[in-house]
Design a protein around this nucleic acid. Structure first.
Length: 283
DNA sequence: AGTGTTACCTGTGTGC
DNA sequence: TGCACACAGGTAACAC
């Protein structure tokens, strides 16, 4: 489950194989992922040109020439990989079909895009492009963390009356859209804020400081091609590299990297998820 | 209303 | 090797 940087990495990888290209055929190999696929999905995709691939939070949006948009979510374990395009940018030969290859797009340029998702927490839907932001999954989202609507005042206002731990607040997609467990941990470490602190109890200055930190963490991860843990692959099947840059995530028991801190990274559970942090320098 | 917990799935790693 | 168990990047539906 890719968070925003991983989804953006996938989108960029798919773009040269899909944008401006007609979907010649779509294989839909099961009736559902997390939810049932939309009615007549194969018919509504076949013959449509992908005019643009966009991203909103962790969703990939493919605007089709029919006036509909294909919404794709990778859930926890979803992958989309490209094979066999005629430009030779990707692997030349198509791989053998694998278990959990739920949807396959056969593009008119010879590329094949395979959606594989073992846990099936992913989703796909078709919606009118003109009113895409009204879709129930998108209408509840807060601002894009890398966009202009995510600014210091927004986060200060969102946190002001929150009695919940800042960890939960930053995971709340209605406050800011696209962060997940990893990047929240990393951003709080860089901001020296304890994940246990109540959001409404942090000083305005420290909340404001989190905004550029969040942007930077995400941008650093995008620049590294995302993080590859168990499941994530870029669209060309390559690994991302940002996992080597984690300061706290997955580093339970390891020394804190803050110069002179001397603390040790701890793991605690907050609302069912692991939080990694240094209790010494994150307050 | 706001907040925490559970459930949806399969795969993998660990310890016995 | 086999087995049980904990855990995994998300999010919606619950139960307070």
């Amino acid at each position: 489950m890719p968070e925003l940087p991983e989804v953006e990495t996938v989108r960029r990888g798919l773009s040269p194989a899909m944008e401006g290209v007609v979907i010649e055929k779509a294989d839909v190999n099961r009736p559902d992922l997390r939810w049932p696929f939309p009615d007549r999905m194969v018919e509504r995709l076949t013959g449509q040109r992908v005019d643009r691939l966009r991203r909103r939070s962790k969703y990939i949006l493919a605007d089709l020439s029919s006036g509909e948009t294909l919404l794709i979510h990778l859930g926890m374990s979803g992958r989309m990989t490209v094979s066999g395009d005629p430009l030779g940018q990707f692997a030349h030969t198509h791989p053998m079909p694998e278990k959990h290859d739920h949807v396959v797009f056969h593009m008119a340029n010879g590329a094949r895009i395979t959606f594989n998702d073992p846990r099936r927490f992913g989703a796909m839907d078709l919606l009118p492009t003109a009113t895409a932001e009204d879709h129930k999954l998108l209408s509840v989202l807060g601002p894009e963390p890398l966009g202009n609507d995510f600014h210091e005042q927004h986060l200060v206002d969102a946190f002001r009356s929150k009695n919940t731990p800042v960890k939960s607040a930053l995971l709340d997609q209605g406050i800011v859209a696209g962060l997940g467990n990893i990047y929240v941990c990393e951003a709080l470490y860089r901001g020296r804020v304890s994940p246990r602190r109540k959001a409404g109890q942090i000083s305005v200055a420290r909340v404001a400081a989190l905004v550029p930190i969040i942007r930077q963490v995400l941008q650093d991860a995008i620049d590294a091609g995302g993080s590859s843990l168990r499941d994530f692959r870029q669209a060309d099947g390559e690994l991302g590299y940002f996992q080597h840059s984690f300061d706290v995530y997955g580093r339970e028991g390891a020394p804190c990297r803050t110069p002179g801190c001397g603390g040790e990274i701890k793991r605690i559970t907050q609302s069912g998820r692991s939080s990694f942090y240094c209790a010494q320098c994150q307050r």
